[in-house]
Amino acid sequence: MAARVAELPAELKYIQYEHSLESQYLPAIRALISKDLSEPYSIYVYRYFLYQWGHLCFMALDPVDSSLIGVVICKLEHHASHSPPTRRGYIAMLAVAAPYRGHGVATVLVKKAIDAMAQKNADEVVLETEETNIPAMRLYERLGFLRSKKLHRYYLNGNSAYRLVLLLRHIDPDGHEDPNGAADLSLDDMDTAPR
């Protein structure tokens, strides 16, 4: 692991991603995120997010050479598998280069992403994190996320995950079409049916 920097370079630049930055930053984004994955995502997955929700992606850049230090990638969609439907933000990927960790870079990135999603009328923001990833859980819980459920053996390595949820506004349960029916409490689509 690379040695950590004692102090951050003065004032990192935080910028919102846009499609025109693809050739400049996509390779670096992929490299940064792939480092922590046992299996890389194909370029299609990155484009799936970045092309549709580039405005929910933020990058932390070195102020001197504009190289990539950290990135957060999100999406925001209607979530209708349970009633009432919500506008659900999803933090898909978050990474900060090892030497720059421990200085709150990830927190700034996540805050920017939440702000952007809130501005786009998100009702809630969700994500999954590995049960062993204590720093990530601490980061999100400090911002106000709650562990809503544990997902058994969610990752390829056999580790479980927690679903973390941040509710941005009260969701009116009267949105339920049938308050006595089997209102789905779950936060994902595959809750009851065996996969």
Partner: peptide, 8 residues
């Protein structure tokens, strides 16, 4: 918890 309230 700057983004959350106890009630939410």
């Amino acid at each position: 918890r700057p983004y959350s309230s106890d009630e939410l």
